[in-house]
Amino acid sequence: MRPKILLTNDDGVTSEGLWAAYEALTTFADVTVVAPSTQQSAVGRSISIFEPIRANKVQINGKEAYSVGGKPTDSVIIGLFALKINPDLVVSGVNIGENLSFESVMTSGTIGAALEAANHGVPAVAFSLQVEDQGDKFDDPKYITLDFEESKKAIIDICRKLLKNGFPESSDVINVNIPKTFLGKYEVTHLAEKLFETGVEKRLDPRGRPYFWINGPLYENAPKGTDVNSISKGNISITPITLDSTSYKGLNEIKEIFEI
């Protein structure tokens, strides 16, 4: 029997990256698309709890999908508990732009959707494609002109291996980042501390009142073995992530501080 996959993202249901993943996954699996109606980048794992969520069946590229008026996590919850898809795997992506380092894991809607699935006991993989121009992240993902061919190959290879062999013990999500120019190597990595050098630009509106843009260049000095370093070398970065954020190394120190 073909495995069942729930496919979602944070760029929205019309994104070229989502449908590139769909094209790859349907070569070996039955795929149901449940994705946000609109762009939801950088919402992390936030959930809509103060408003109702609408999920409408739509046709995109001649294929059926569910367009969810909410966050990526909402899409996963609707897929699992309202549509009762019962997938063997949840795939999130392909995201337009890399999701690397501590920063992205905490803020990415792509990874947030995968973490939500994992928290409900469903293994999940997040796929992201590096962009050369950071401005591409802010363009309409429906009309993006990136080349997804290497992404499709990686999706097929990685997902089939995970479905065949199972997830590694103590790993809840596999975070995969694909370089804009792939040099043919997979690299198992850990998260870098930073992706961007954080900066803030102050500007004045027409009335002379200040406002701010958070910005900053890409971080270029990540240590070897990190996801940021791997991508900079043209390798596909594969990073296992866990839901448990407990600092086990800090437990004894905390016990000493509070004399427990």
Rank of each mutant, 00 (worst) to 15 (best):
P123H: 04
D157C: 00
W213D: 15
T246V: 10
N229W: 15
G69T: 11
I254A: 13
E253W: 10
K255M: 12
I257Q: 12
A124I: 01
G225C: 03
A118M: 04
F81V: 08
T145K: 15
K153C: 03
E259S: 12
E253R: 10
N56G: 08
E64F: 14
I155H: 00
K142E: 12
K164H: 08
V43I: 11
K161W: 08
I155K: 04
A65T: 09
A114K: 04
N61R: 15
K224F: 10
G135E: 13
S151M: 00
G79E: 02
A55F: 08
A24N: 05
E256S: 13
A192V: 06
T26G: 07
T181Y: 14
L243P: 01
C159F: 02
F212A: 08
S101P: 10
A124R: 00
V33G: 01
Q40I: 03
I214V: 11
V228Q: 09
A222M: 07
A113Y: 06
G208I: 03
T181V: 15
N229I: 14
I178C: 01
D205G: 07
G234P: 04
E51L: 14
P240M: 10
V90N: 04
G135D: 12
K164F: 03
Y248V: 13
V68D: 04
S230K: 07
A114C: 00
R209E: 12
G97P: 00
G234C: 04
V188H: 09
S46D: 13
F81N: 05
A24L: 05
V122K: 02
V105A: 09
C159I: 04
Q59D: 13
V58K: 06
E253Q: 11
D172H: 08
I47S: 03
W213N: 15
S171V: 15
F102P: 02
F102T: 10
E149A: 14
K202W: 05
T226F: 02
G216R: 02
A42R: 05
T246Q: 08
A124W: 01
T38L: 14
T189N: 07
A117V: 03
S108Q: 02
L100Q: 02
A24P: 03
W19H: 04
V68P: 01
V105L: 08
N215A: 06
T27H: 07
K152I: 02
T14V: 13
D136C: 09
T189Q: 04
V34D: 00
G216T: 05
L80D: 02
V91Y: 01
A192C: 03
N252Q: 14
F258Q: 10
Y22Q: 06
L251D: 09
V91D: 03
